[in-house]
Design a protein around this nucleic acid. Sequence first.
DNA 1: TTGAAAGCGATACCAC
DNA 2: GTGGTATCGCTTTCAA
Lengths: 387, 387
Amino acid sequence: MVPATGTSAVPAGGTSGAPPTGTSAAPPTGTAAAPPARASLGPPTSTSVARHAGVSRATVSYVLNGLAAGRVSEATQRKVRAAAEELGYVPHAAARSLRSGTSGLVLIAVPADTVPAFGPLFTGFVAGFQSALQEYGYIGVLHGATAGRDPLDAARAWAELRPAAVLTMDGSPLSGPSVDILKRSGTSAVVSYGPPPAPGAHGIAMDQREIGAVAAAHLLSGGRRHIGVVVPVEHGLSMFGMPRLEGVRAAAAAFPGARVEPLALAYAEDSAAELAARWRETGLDAVFAYNDEYAMLLMRALQDAGIDVPGEAAVVGADDLLLGRLLRPRLTSVRIELPTPGEVAALVDRLIREPETPPAVHRRSSAHIEVRGSSGGLGGGGAGVSV
Amino acid sequence: MVPATGTSAVPAGGTSGAPPTGTSAAPPTGTAAAPPARASLGPPTSTSVARHAGVSRATVSYVLNGLAAGRVSEATQRKVRAAAEELGYVPHAAARSLRSGTSGLVLIAVPADTVPAFGPLFTGFVAGFQSALQEYGYIGVLHGATAGRDPLDAARAWAELRPAAVLTMDGSPLSGPSVDILKRSGTSAVVSYGPPPAPGAHGIAMDQREIGAVAAAHLLSGGRRHIGVVVPVEHGLSMFGMPRLEGVRAAAAAFPGARVEPLALAYAEDSAAELAARWRETGLDAVFAYNDEYAMLLMRALQDAGIDVPGEAAVVGADDLLLGRLLRPRLTSVRIELPTPGEVAALVDRLIREPETPPAVHRRSSAHIEVRGSSGGLGGGGAGVSV
DNA sequence: TTGAAAGCGATACCAC
DNA sequence: GTGGTATCGCTTTCAA
């Protein structure tokens, strides 16, 4: 940076008076009555406000940012505020963040292709998180559509916005190098909500295996020994499906004679019907169906195929949705408890203000089984078993 | 947990003052090979890359934006790209948008408090829309947490980001003046997806009354005359609930003796049970239950209360969710067809490039009834009646 | 083929 | 109390 001969003496005088526009008197766009004094041609800027109020840009900045105490007279302040109001002035976030070096933006990153598969739990979290962030003065935006599948490309796309923090959810691509890109570009906090974090990132972990383990523990203690585990074929879900399957396997390993079998299932009636049709061949007596929606779908198909639930097939879902209680028998479900939106927002705020905090994994999650009719059974199956 | 590539030292801001003065840099003789040194203290900028590659910032800009054809030699281009790669350079979106005047940002505005109530249809649309926008070169972000309830405050918050377009969904606050704020601050397109647009905004309209009307037409043609209409008590939903109720009323007006009655219902089992318990007192013989989820909830409660569905109560939902087909009888539902994410993205792109396009309402939506068991009944009830 | 330099809009330090 | 003005990072014209 060599300002050197700066200044260059170009006061308000000669500079090419009109901005690029010059021509083409923009026709009055608005339908309603046009505001009286529309002096400027482009959007109103701090400069327009200053001109309009007859003060300098510096004064405008002080007044509009509440730093005018003792510096600017009451009368001037009123003038400035009136001018801003009249012109419909709104500060330019990009300019501000360029100057200040921080954007106040918190990116919630989600891969677009898995979003449709998320349920009310996800949606509710995002909404609550955005509200909570707002209280801290940040502005949280959900950024789906991860460019390509390459974690690095995704990270670059996020980094362009210079977010104060990035919260990656579920299947968002995140690798060591991509965390590095973000950190290097000024992002103070990179937090992974759900999956284990990439190197360098903080994590709010929910071990998906735990979910499978809880479900399996319940089924096994109920006397079931041949457990099917639904692994959705839909895009992106395998990221959860496989660990949950592993969790079931791990739990079953302790029971001699126990058998675990993955079951591919698409979220469609015919796929469920097909699986139900060959249920008896599989020799299974229980199924952990990934989540409540798949569980409902499968349970219905089993019943339609004449399979008794829970007699011939105990069914367990996850997420504990209200709708699961509407079927008969009611659906047993693993309820997953993750940190609340408010807690996550608090963490993010802390990490932003203390960027040097060494990456850590925050484990405050748990999984409980809500036992209902669909898994009643052979043996007992205690209620409220937790892990 | 391996810290990967060191990187621990991050921002270390505060470098204010004291320009480089040309010292430092120059590694002590020898070791001329790779310069692994991380010269800059802050995030890498276009300037760092230029220095690192031994060229000017202008050249860097040309190369990295693909405008180097015929201007910059191949060798220089390689040098620049290598430098950018090595430094982990990512352009600063704010600076670029400040200079270029456009941000390429498309804001998808949703009031945070209603988001949790939205189903897979909403989530799927947003995901698809973001992907589609990406193909057009925009970056779509979902901005919930509308500050306060004041449309003007919300508009100001959005306008700070200088988005190229704003798509307001469902219950987002939008008024004439708030559209004006956005337009004034440079937003080319303000589009309302769902509700009728505020003055000055474009609209992709789905007349909620139509949905109620389609449901009612089906029930009436099936011989039902006493129709209950569920109006959810949950936050934000009344914005849809009331128009749908109106639609039912309008359709019923044509049938002498027809009666329409609003039914408050919370999304909880006890609320549904309570309503079911007094079903017979109400003298109703049919219910349009707002959407499939409320319909499922209510239908189950009715059945549990010993009310025959569809005999004593025909039930109609909306959204045509897969889960609705799992209950017995299967749920009759109004399927709503709105323009696809791709179509909306195309419209938004057009409006951004032709900002002077006069506001218009694009009606490409329709509602059809999917007749299933839950509304079978007294009379006939044709299949696939559309509006 | 490359570089110098003028801004885009907002902030904050330092004179007046 | 106010006003100049350097600066953030980047694009782009014009000159060399």
